[in-house]
Amino acid sequence: MKLTGRRIFQGKTEGEALVTKDSISFYGGIDPETGIVVEKGHELEGVNTTDKILVFPSGKGSTVGSYVIYQMAKTGKGPKALILGECEAIVAVGTIIAELPCVDQIDVSKIETGMKLVVDGDNGEVEIK
């Protein structure tokens, strides 16, 4: 099945989906040194996002989050692509400076954790294999 959304940043990759219905704060919500979600009470608390395709409704929190996305991408921690329902400035800027494939305006309820995804950031498409 192919889902069509909007390109936030280009690039193609494939991998395993990690899905949450909770918004994500990259600054303070994820430990950049491990890629593990640390926000108390978050659906993914304690889960490692490294090498996953992270699927979530939206970003939230401090704008420093953009630098956290960049830091994780440079050190090989954290997700390898981001799929969102609605992207806002923190995540958009983070993926552009990190050069991480990112697509939004995707119906994220169609994706479940563990599914194999092909992300085509160039065309704003996500394929479920």
């Binding site: 936030i8 830091q71 958009a92």
Partner: peptide, 28 residues
């Protein structure tokens, strides 16, 4: 594009946050 802007407008001043090394770290 995300926020539906149609064009750019000129600005007269900027103030930049994200200056502390404690927030930026080496990658920043």
């Amino acid at each position: 594009d995300i926020y539906g802007a149609k064009r750019f407008i000129d600005i007269t001043s900027v103030q930049i946050a994200g200056v502390s090394y404690a927030n930026l770290n080496e990658p920043g």
